[in-house]
Structures are given as C-alpha cells and as structure tokens.
Nucleic acid binder design. Structure first.
Length: 266
DNA sequence: ACATTGACCTGAGAGC
DNA sequence: TGCTCTCAGGTCAATG
C-alpha cells in the first residue's frame, strides 16, 4: 500500500517522466477524489503550467508548479500514478488525467477512491493544518526527536508508529516490518519501551524505509530477512521459520513472529 | 489531550 | 453458478 517507500518511488517516477512539459488539459473522471477544488478550477490552475519538481512529506506527494502552486497527491490504499502515451491502453481506475503537449499523460489511478488530489499554495501550512508529524526519513529527524515524539504516549507502539501526527509516512505494512526488525511485539505499550528498545526501533525505522525504497517498494525485491513477503496466512518468520501470527491492533491486521517478537512485561 | 472505533470506498476471494 | 460475507487499510469524525 502507498506508504512512505511507495510514495518515494512514485516521486522518482514523476521526476523521470513528468517534469518540464507544458500541460495542455486536465480531465477528471471522478470528482470524489478532488477535495478543495472543482474539476473546472483544477483545469484552470494547471493548464499552460509545467511541473518544476516534486517533494514528499510522509505519504503526501507535492508536485511543484512553475507558478509556485502545488498539486498535492495522496494515494490512499490503492492509488498510483502512471505516465503513458495517449493512445496506449488506460489503467482501470483513472480518476484524474493531466495531459501534456507531447502526447503523453500523467494519470492518477485509484480503485478505492480513498485518496485525494488537491491544489495548495503553501506547503508548510498544509503540513501544519493536516497536523503531520516529521517525515520519518527526514535527515534532521534524529533519535532525540524520535524519542521526544513518543514521550508521554500511552497506546500501543504499532498504533503510535502509524499515527501520522507523531511520525509521517509509516502505515500498516511497514510498521509491522519495523517492529519485526526491532524485535518488538506490536502490542507493547509505548511507555514500557526503554532507551535501548527505542534506539533499535529508531534504527529499524530508518533502515527498513531506506532499504525498501532501494527495493522499489516491491515486496518481491525486499532483502532476505524481511517479514513483508511473509505477511499472509501461512507465512513463516524469515529468521526462525515460526509461523507468523495475525492480530488486530487498533482495528488493523498486524503480522508478527511470536518467537522473535516476545511481549515484555508492561 | 489522548486513545480507540466505525465509516468511507471497491473488488477480490471465501464459503455455502 | 451466484449470492452474501469478510477483508484490505489511510484518514477522519465520533466516541470512550
């Protein structure tokens, strides 16, 4: 699902396909995906412009326009971008198409309609009003900042990792992987983690996210020793072959290895 | 102020 | 075959 590594891969995809081209027109197939803007307004604000560069914060992708605006994309659970020639076969669930003068288009595909396409003028304001925490991979998000974010939290660590107000970018799948690499049970309460546990959690977070981007966020290309390819019924721990267990944490299905991720007293 | 739960949304897959 | 049920999971509003 589009979490930080997936969105980073999308970002690089846009960088290598969609920058510096004149936008000819915009077609909106489903307006539900648009949040603060009508289809007509979106067209007006994009037509004749170009994409200069992109940036990412957590699971949000910002496409910087040449006039200072930002096309802001969130992919929900099933969203992805695709750049292709106008006469090629379209993806199944195109919601918004940005057509360039060169005969190609950038399509926003999203089966389940839970994502958003917005136009904004102030990136920092957007991050503040949406109460997004620091991006998990931001260089200045160091261990001290990480520790500070989790201070005073009472819930379960898996929920905290997935909370975008605390840290931006981690969702259900990668929170499982991070906890697995750190050897921490998903239901461990945040307050019961000591400094050494927090330290291994922090390093696991950075390592898992960076390594996953390198693997193109593709489960089949994940390094040996990753849990992600085993996140299903019948999966086994890559370290000890113990069958993985599935539990509900805050309404989400979490997978973990009951042998490698023992629950400490809390 | 914080944590948890249910609704939103669509299609795949299970079970009968 | 075809129907119904469950599940997937990011976010937000409602509730605890």
């Amino acid at each position: 699902m589009p979490e930080l590594p997936d969105v980073e891969v999308f970002k690089r995809y846009l960088d290598s396909t969609s920058l510096h081209q004149d936008i000819q027109k915009v077609e909106v197939e489903n307006t539900r995906i648009l949040k603060n803007i009508s289809a007509r307004q979106l067209q007006t604000r994009l037509k004749g412009r170009r994409f200069d560069r992109t940036s990412r914060h957590g699971k949000y992708l910002f496409v910087h326009l040449d006039d200072g605006q930002y096309l802001t994309l969130h992919f929900g659970m099933t969203g992805f971008p695709r750049y292709f020639k106008n006469d090629e076969k379209e993806p199944d669930h195109e919601r918004v198409k940005v057509k360039f003068k060169n005969g190609y288009q950038l399509a926003y595909d999203n089966q389940r309609l839970l994502g958003t396409v917005k136009m904004i003028r102030d990136r920092n304001r957007f991050i503040n009003t949406n109460r997004l925490g620091p991006d998990a991979l931001a260089p200045d998000f160091d261990f001290d900042a990480f520790q500070e974010c989790l201070e005073g939290r009472r819930g379960m660590i898996k929920s905290a990792l997935m909370n975008q107000e605390i840290i931006a970018g981690i969702g259900n799948v990668y929170s499982d992987e991070i906890l697995f690499q750190a050897g921490i049970h998903p239901k461990t309460s945040v307050g019961s983690l000591d400094t050494s546990a927090l330290l291994s959690l922090y390093h696991a977070m950075k390592h898992v996210l960076q390594r996953s981007i390198k693997a193109n966020a593709d489960p089949e290309k994940m390094p040996a020793g990753f849990l992600i390819p085993q996140r299903h019924k019948g999966g086994v721990c890559p370290n000890c072959d113990t069958p993985v267990e599935k539990i509900k944490v805050a309404g989400r299905s979490g997978y973990f290895c009951p042998a490698c991720q023992q629950r400490s007293e809390d």
